[in-house]
Design a protein around this nucleic acid. Structure first.
Length: 109
DNA sequence: CGTTTTTGACCGGCGC
DNA sequence: GCGCCGGTCAAAAACG
């Protein structure tokens, strides 16, 4: 990741930090929908959660993130203290109960 | 040195 | 039965 890459080439796409560590294990261009698809896996042991990122070649800013696997096995380490301590930290992780979350998705009408 | 990332290629499942 | 697609893995290279 950043530590090794040094960004000499520079990541082509900006990934929204969701508070978890993911390892990219695949990237492919789905011509069926004319969009790129990247596959990430949670790097926590016992955490078989997978993340899929899909974005269109013309709109790299439109990221559609889909979480798979359900819930994480470890506590969500949020960068913002207070948020997790805010009434029911477990509730925060609960939001990930929905197997799939979608981000972006803003087709101009 | 360790770690991570990137790309290519391969395989299985499904539909008709 | 066959073809096609999506998904995953492996290896190599580079950086601090």
């Amino acid at each position: 990741m950043d530590q090794a890459g040094g960004e000499s080439g520079g990541r082509r796409i900006e990934l929204p930090g969701d508070g978890f560590e993911w390892k990219k294990y695949g990237q492919k261009f789905i011509k069926s929908i004319w969009k790129f698809r990247a596959y990430y896996k949670c790097q926590k042991e016992g955490c078989n959660v997978k993340k899929k990122v899909e974005w269109s070649e013309s709109d790299p800013h439109n990221l559609r993130i889909v979480y798979e696997g359900g819930q994480h096995n470890h506590d969500l380490s949020t960068q913002d203290p207070g948020e997790s301590s805010r009434g029911g930290s477990s509730a925060d992780a609960n939001r990930y109960n929905l197997i799939n979350q979608v981000f972006g998705d803003n087709p101009p009408s």
